[in-house]
Simulated assay, not measured.
Amino acid sequence: MSWTALYASFFATMGFGVLFNVPRKTLLPIGLVGMIGWMIYVGLTLNLQINLITATLIASFSIATLSQILARRFKMPVTVFSIAGIIPLVPGGMAYDTLRQFIENNYMESVRLGSITLLIAGSIAFGLIFSSVITETFSQRKVFPKSD
């Protein structure tokens, strides 16, 4: 894992935070959330050879859980942290390659890449939802008490 990729994920996440007009005091934590999520994703795919969909699911779950913690710490909505933090995992390049293959009449490759793109997008959504459900379940049991 290169330092350049970590820095890029940090600043890209912060850039989307600026684009989404989040409060200034949350820009550094938002950047860290995106960087940590990317670090988990790359660590799982490169070091442990876990497939892309599973690694994306685990990384998005981690991002959403960290976002829940930071939202309570900063007394802000979870979406302030999770939406910008999930940006490094979004399969935009793969979606582009899917359409490029389709335009070049490579339909089988287009279908293959499109299927992977949809599975990655689904795993991002499932990771975010699963984290929310787990956090709400434990906060109702007073394991993670909500701050007032």
Rank of each mutant, 00 (worst) to 15 (best):
A125K: 02
F126E: 01
L52G: 02
I69N: 07
I50C: 05
T4F: 05
I116C: 09
F11S: 11
G93N: 04
T65M: 04
N106K: 09
Y41K: 11
S82K: 00
T54E: 04
I120E: 04
L119T: 05
V111E: 09
I58T: 07
A8K: 07
R141I: 05
S60Q: 02
N51I: 08
G93Q: 02
E104M: 07
I40D: 03
I30A: 06
V33A: 14
L89H: 02
S60V: 01
L57P: 00
L44R: 09
S82G: 04
I134M: 09
Q68R: 11
R73H: 10
A125R: 11
E109V: 06
R112Q: 12
T65V: 11
Y107K: 14
L28F: 10
W38G: 03
L48E: 06
I129R: 03
Q140G: 03
F138G: 05
S147E: 08
I63Y: 01
R112V: 06
P29M: 11
L19C: 11
Y7T: 12
I69S: 12
V78W: 06
N106Q: 10
A5Q: 12
A84P: 00
Y7G: 02
G43C: 15
R112N: 12
A64P: 06
P88A: 00
M94S: 09
T56E: 06
F81D: 00
P145Y: 09
Q49K: 14
F61C: 03
M35L: 12
L48S: 14
F10N: 02
L52D: 01
L128S: 01
S110Y: 14
L46Y: 13
F144H: 15
F144M: 12
G92V: 02
Q101I: 05
F11Q: 07
V143F: 11
V18P: 11
T79V: 11
A125I: 07
G34N: 01
G114C: 12
I134A: 08
G31D: 07
N21G: 11
Q68K: 08
E136T: 06
I124D: 00
S82C: 05
S67Y: 07
M1W: 04
G15D: 14
G37S: 04
M14G: 09
T117P: 07
L32G: 05
V22K: 08
A8I: 14
T98H: 03
I116N: 10
V111Q: 13
M35P: 10
P91T: 08
L128K: 01
G34L: 00
I120R: 00
I120H: 02
R112K: 14
P145L: 14
L113K: 09
I134H: 05
S147H: 11
S147Q: 09
L28W: 08
I129Y: 11
Y41I: 00
V18R: 13
V33W: 05
D97P: 01
F10L: 12
N106M: 15
E104H: 10
N21K: 06
L128A: 10
F74H: 14
K142Y: 14
L46Q: 14
G37I: 03
F20W: 11
L57K: 04
L119Q: 09
Q68F: 14
I58R: 05
V80P: 02
A84N: 02
D148Y: 14
T54P: 00
M108I: 12
I83F: 01
M76C: 06
T26R: 04
V18K: 08
E104I: 05
A55D: 06
A8F: 02
T54A: 15
L48M: 15
A59V: 02
Q140D: 10
V80T: 10
F130Q: 01
L44Y: 13
K142M: 14
L57Q: 06
T4C: 05
P29A: 15
